[in-house]
Write a protein that binds this DNA or RNA. Structure first.
Lengths: 340, 340
DNA sequence: CTGAAAGCGCTTACAG
DNA sequence: CTGAAAGCGCTTACAG
């Protein structure tokens, strides 16, 4: 591959002039421009991005930092939707996406620090992480970044769904159907989004005079299998719940599987609610009642906020994306013996 | 952020020595090394990757070129599995992944050319594209790359599944169940993988003395909705098929939906076969009979081949990943009137 | 063991 | 309109 110097020599101009032609910058006579362009076309010259990056101090690369292993990322339709939203906005700005996942769950910090403290990416979007050390490392003032989730650092724009409102609506829906004993499947550790969802559930059930029983909170890891295990546990005990609210859809689908295994019919014997509204939720039998949070919009909003920062705007308040309760076939009134 | 020159000044050594400490290269006295390390720690210095890239001629970035829009990519579980396989191997080598999708289906060429002809990535993996112009542009001798699919260029390692064998086995399965009229849902344009699958079907049905009827080949675009449309068309005509083989799982799920709409029971009235074995295939009701092609292994093999090339190995013959017929609940004998 | 110098391939004021 | 020179921040032989 020729360099700009060789092109300059062939076109009998200086490298500076070739650079101007390449970037359509300042005045170059039509004649000279033509000559340079011809040489470029003839040689198939493509300027070195590496050199350009060093001199312009930009790479047009947006980092996407996901504190999960790639296995976890690719298993999570909601994360993928977020990624799609980011991709879409980045693409418009002619930015490429550099994906950074963690080698292992505990290693998220080092990978991120590496990427954020160096000059590989112009800016980054971080999917919320609980790790305080990571948050500290991230708080590097030179770097432009935004968070999808609840911001832990000052001056960093955050984008999140209305987790509280969505969970509130869904729990109210269950209470209105007549459910009094409602199981919840959460996770440990618990990202802020899940804290908010739990808060919504707690408030809705308190208002319905059917306060959330701490003993009915089981723990999963967002996977379908973990939801299945947690549900088997909740349903295997005496005084089992008549409804289970899993804090994401994949675990909710696991709950349905667990119910089938125990010979329970959904929704006649057990109501199930999820969160996210991944595409599978509507395709499942029975179709899942869930809280829709638009992943694409979350990702797009985060990317937009990041580019705004890059363009010099001041970081604004958190962007909250509305959620929506979607009632489908997996919820109904509790079975008769439990009805008042 | 300080530069290497400032670190050198503070540690009272030359920039060259700092560089040696940074890269653990050649001999540096323990004492000097300590001093330099201390200064680096105190200042929080992180060397500029951009400068490093320019002088070392490597970026540790692997390009992933996908000739689809990001919408199409993220809607395709099989592609995502491939991506996961690539990610996994790249991660081990401390490579980051740079994602390049097409802005629009027709623009795949320019995006790829841009990325492959420049020096942004050390190497790339290309998901097979039909576009001949793209293939030509890709055939840039300087760049290391591999193809997932059937290679169109000389000296480029290719990795693909045993499409022919998988489709052959699935079509034979249908023939053995007694099906004589078998519909197929393919696509236009048709990647080589689908050519191979069609060839497998043709051979299996010819051997079973129930030759494939060209009139029963419908066209989709890999999406569930397109499979639904194509199936409605195939099933709405007189002499409708008793089985439909959709050349990917998402279209097959669309076929099942179409059958439901027409009041047909799967598999009693219509048998359905897919291809890929995405995770949804097993979760669907009825669970889908399909040909499993391990996306993760495809991706991992392609990444491994790419790194081998980067390490100086000569490109070998295509790697063929075995496929496997997975028989589930969506296939059965044809309905009585059609049985001989 | 250590450092001066050249080089990676561009861009960017600045002079002319 | 055009070009000489400096600069981006590292690494890499090569000398000492």
């Amino acid at each position: 591959m020729p360099t700009i110097d060789e092109i300059a020599r062939l076109a009998q101009v200086s490298p500076a002039t070739v650079s101007k032609v390449l970037n359509n910058r300042s005045y170059v006579s039509a004649q000279t421009r033509e000559r340079v362009k011809r040489v470029i076309a003839e040689t198939g010259f493509v300027p070195s991005q590496r050199a350009r990056w060093l001199s312009t101090q930009r790479t047009l690369i947006l980092g996407l930092l996901i504190p999960y292993t790639s296995d976890q990322l690719f298993a999570d339709p909601h994360l993928l939707e977020i990624m799609r939203g980011i991709e879409s906005v980045a693409n418009e700005r002619e930015y490429n996406l550099l994906l950074s996942t963690a080698r292992s769950p505990s290693q998220a910090g080092s990978a991120f620090t590496r990427l954020l403290r160096t000059d590989v990416v112009d800016a980054a979007i971080v999917v919320e992480t609980l790790d305080v050390q990571v948050a500290a490392a991230l708080a590097h003032p030179d770097k432009t970044w935004a968070v999808i989730g609840y911001a832990h650092a000052e001056g960093v724009p955050a984008v999140h769904a209305d987790d509280y409102g969505g969970a509130l609506a869904a729990a109210r829906h269950l209470a209105e159907l007549g459910h009094r004993r409602i199981g919840v499947i959460s996770s440990v550790p618990r990202p802020s989004a899940l804290d908010e969802r739990l808060r919504g559930i707690t408030d809705a059930l308190a208002a319905a005079d059917a306060p959330l029983d701490e003993a009915l909170i089981a723990v999963g890891d967002f996977s379908l299998e973990s939801g299945e295990r947690a549900a088997l546990e909740l349903l295997g005990r005496p005084g089992r719940p008549s409804a289970i609210f899993a804090l994401n859809d994949r675990m909710a689908l696991g709950v349905v599987r667990a119910a089938h295994q125990l010979g329970l019919h959904v929704p006649d014997d057990l109501s199930v609610v999820g969160f996210d509204d991944i595409s599978l939720a509507a395709l499942f039998t029975p179709a899942l009642t869930t809280v829709r949070q638009p992943g694409f919009r979350l990702g797009a909003a985060a990317a937009t906020a990041t580019f705004a920062l890059l363009d010099g705007a001041a970081p604004g308040p958190p962007t909250v994306i509305p959620t929506e309760l979607v009632i489908r076939g997996s919820t109904g009134p509790p079975p008769a013996p439990e009805r008042r």
